[in-house]
Nucleic acid binder design. Structure first.
Lengths: 228, 228
DNA sequence: CCAAAAGTGTTAGAGATACACCCATGG
DNA sequence: CCATGGGTGTATCTCTAACACTTTTGG
């Protein structure tokens, strides 16, 4: 039992984790096992421990509820409407996250019946205000993608330029010109061609590239912009 | 006295309020009256009430501590390092705010000995992790200014193009070309020329403009970008 | 008439866009 | 040999950046 002189709200973290499955942008949801909203789908998340950093909470909850680890994570916003949780005042710090969903198999656990990927345009009703959180996360994802090379988080380590282009087209929802896209994306200097090509394809094998994280970190320091 | 099954952190809001005083970008600080950090300068802010929305808390604390009301406010980020407050675990939701400092006279109050504007390049040591919060707020201010017409929040209702240009130059820290700046800023269609000119100046009186908030709201809805 | 800031157009260069065909591979 | 996607260059246009003088007003 914990006592305070002044009332303290509960604080949770919730994660909007996006992945790309062929032509579908998907989001990772869990089915709640406990009230309130038992049986409903929700963003993975949970209570922040007292001695735990916020981002660490987000990573822990994600791992506990979905088995997903090792992912790109950034703070999105904090949602604190007084009535957003029927139990008590709960303020939630929302995180935006991006993974390559093939590298991150999901497995339900704590407080969750199951975890699964849903296409963002075919979602079930979500618990709490998680639809609002997700809307904001999607808007942020689309706008960040245009001027930061976040997209590579969706891809495997080695990828082709066509994969990158499809990724952008899927998330932005518009077709892009192949030659112009390649020029732009290569002109960033962030893509390193490997000495390898695709295998097992029934057509000319594409050049493989990797994303140069070090170079990106360097560029970011001295102010950096690109634009798709 | 309040009791919980699980420990709850305290939650506060803190505001980085910027104002423009001629050639100086200033930030509003309060001198703390209570421990911890009694006597130190800090961002205005305080504990969130249990039934109170986050943004409402920020507005209330600002009014209580500095007398400033009626301002532009947007959520910046949430800071939650476990040891950021020596008393107990305190998670703070930081807000970014912009005012015309001549329209918003400050008056110290609750929990504060006094409130005052400080130039951002001549700050005292700040309490807690408020220097980190302020750094982030400044970075966000500068980057937002380039592609959103936030700057008008600094200005009085009626202003001249030269005032707008000075504002941008002060915050971005670089000189801008007068003709190009005017072309760009007018081409947004967000500035409405008034049937008035400056008065009491010892030179040619400049055209006065107002910022068209309605038009801006309209543009924002259908996706909108500009770039200084 | 002098000081101070307001106001105004043009040109050159860079970057963005539009666009179509040949190539390599596996089946 | 055919189907599939991989890979490539150029011309046009638009947007940006650089740049200097005349006008108005008050003192």
């Amino acid at each position: 039992m914990y006592s305070y002189k002044y009332p303290h709200p509960a604080v949770t973290v919730d994660c909007a984790v996006f992945g790309l499955d062929d032509g579908d942008l998907k989001v990772l949801l869990i089915q709640r096992d406990l009230e309130p909203f038992a049986g409903s789908w929700a963003l993975p998340g949970g209570f922040v421990k007292l001695e735990e950093d916020l981002e660490a909470s987000a990573r822990r909850e994600l791992e506990e509820e979905t088995g997903v680890t090792d992912l790109y994570l950034e703070q999105l916003a904090t949602f604190g409407a007084p009535d957003r949780d029927p139990r008590e005042r709960v303020i939630t710090v929302a995180y935006l996250s991006i993974v390559n969903l093939f590298d991150h198999p999901v497995t339900a656990a704590t407080d969750a019946r199951k975890a699964a990927w849903f296409p963002v345009d075919a979602l079930p009703r979500l618990a709490f205000d998680h639809e609002d959180i997700l809307d904001l996360a999607l808007a942020r994802l689309r706008s960040k993608l245009r001027w930061q090379p976040l997209g590579f988080e969706f891809l495997p380590e080695k990828f082709t330029l066509t994969q990158v282009q499809r990724l952008y087209e899927t998330i932005l929802g518009e077709a892009l010109d192949k030659r112009n896209f390649r020029k732009k994306i290569l002109s960033t200097g962030l893509l390193v061609p490997l000495e390898e090509v695709e295998t097992d394809v029934a057509h000319r094998a594409a050049q493989l590239y990797r994303f140069d994280r070090k170079e990106y970190a360097r560029l970011q320091k001295k102010g950096y912009g690109f634009e798709i």
